[in-house]
Amino acid sequence: MSVLVNKNSKVVVQGFTGKEGTFHASQMIEYGTHIIGGVTPGKGGQSHLGLPVFNTVADSVKEAAANVSVIFVPPAFASDAIMEAADAGIGVIICITEGIPTADMIRVKEYLTDKDCRLVGPNCPGVITPDEAKVGIMPGFIHKKGSIGIVSRSGTLTYEAVEQLTKIGLGQTTALGIGGDPIIGTQTRDAVELFMNDPETKGIVMIGEIGGNMEADAAYWIRDHGTKPVVSFIAGATAPKGRTMGHAGAIIGGKSDTAEAKKAILRECGIHVVDSPADIGKKMKEVLG
């Protein structure tokens, strides 16, 4: 078992023939992900990387039964791409694109409320279920099939946690990068719920950062409904107030945005918080006994 993506995922790549799309599609194919082809409007009927190109996401669903989409479309057109995938009936939409205007994402969020789909991202590394499907830009080789679910707002910091869990022999069920923007689809709490309900997942690593209430929201849910140990690191204890730290969503506005405030809430809710990102793997091993 795993969450969101697995060996049965049929992945369509939006922005398939662009530079990013081409590079990462080949990496995903090499990893063994079942890529059914891609979408580039106006290039339908052509072939790219030995796979069919479709004009619309709807065509890729009709002709190749696509059920997962991964988006590499430039920021100005990415919100449209997400809505197109939702309209076509794609169940899991993973948007890698960084730099989408917030106003566009407000519209997307509204549009998705009555659609039967789950958005991951934007501005995220994607989702990987080791040995089954890599849908995103993460380096596949550091992952190892195992028992820990990871949810994170960051890319390379997720890789850091993955590496530690692999080295210590725990491995991952699925690693889920939810993205660093102020408005994202799947939230920390949604991801935690998915992992709590996944029988293969024995423990959860929750990586957060300054800005917003997502980690606190997840922590209260864990306190009330959690059944598995959760280890957490919150980045940005040294970040100054009012400055955007790379991720558009990583900004301390008020007191509840700080790493310290978040850690305090997490600890109260019974989550194993580590102060150093170097201790994530060790801590998980320790709490699993």
Binding site: L157, T158, A235, A237, T238, A250, A278
Partner: peptide, 17 residues
């Protein structure tokens, strides 16, 4: 000097620790 915003913040935290 770090690649990725999350890891960059985490690295700052490590320096402090």
């Amino acid at each position: 000097m770090v690649n990725g915003a999350g890891l960059a913040m985490a690295t700052m935290d490590i320096i402090k620790l």
